[in-house]
Amino acid sequence: MHIPTPPLDLEHARDASFQAAVASESGQCLASCYQCGMCTAGCAYTPDYDVPVHQVMRLVQLGLREQVLSCRAIWLCASCQACTTRCPNNIDVARVMDVLRHMARRAGHAPEANVKTFADSFLASVARHGRVFEAGLAAVFAIKSGRPMQDAGLGLPMLTRGKLALIPHEPTGNGKAEVAAIFARFNRFADQGAGRHSHDDVQRSGTPKASANTPKARSDTAKDSAPTTEDGQ
C-alpha cells in the first residue's frame, strides 16, 4: 500500500525562476520568509488546508512550482489578512496567496472547483449587471455546484424579510455598459496574453501532471477564467 517517497532531487525538481516570478507579480520578497509559522498559527483556515501557509511559502522559496500551484490551500485562503497583519517580515502573505491562485488558474488547476465556480459566477453576474445580483448568483451557483438544496432553506426567511431582491439593481446610467466594457477588455487582453501564459506554463511545468494538465481541464479553464457570458438569467 505504502508508496515510497524518494528523496527530492532538488536540482532537478526546482524551477529557479518561480520564486522571482511570484516576487514580481506580488511585489513581495519571498526570500525574507524564515519559516516561523506565524501565518499558519493565526490562519483560520489551516485546519482546511492540505498545505499550511508557511509551507506554501517554503514551496515557493524552493521553486517547487507544480506542488504549489496544484494545492488546495491557495483556493481556501479567504484573504482575511491575519497572516499579512502579523508577518514579522512584513510579507503581504495574502497577496502572495492571491498571486499563486492567479498562476494556478492560468496553469489550469482548480482543485477546489466550487470556490473557483463561485468567484467566476460572481464576476459573471457583475459583468452582466454592473453589480452583483445576489439572487441570480445564488441560483447559478446552486446549479453549477451540483448542490442545489444546500441553501434552499434560506429562501423563505429572506423573502419574508424583503431581503431577496428578485430583480437586479443595476447602475442607473452608463455603469452597466462601462463595467461590461472593463470585462470585455480584460478578456481580450487575457486572450492576447494567453499564448504567452500557456507557453510559460508548458515550458516551466517540468514533468506535467496528468490530472491537472489534461486538455480538458485546460479548455475548461480558458472558458471559465473569462467570466463574461454565463449568468443563467
Binding site: Q35, C36, G37, M38, T40, A41, G42, C43, T46, P47, V51, P52, H54, Q55
Partner: peptide
C-alpha cells in the same frame, strides 16, 4: 495560546 508547530505543519 495558539501557535504553529512548523515541524509537523499543524496549528497547536
Amino acid at each position: 495560546v495558539r501557535g504553529a508547530d512548523t515541524l509537523l505543519g499543524v496549528q497547536v
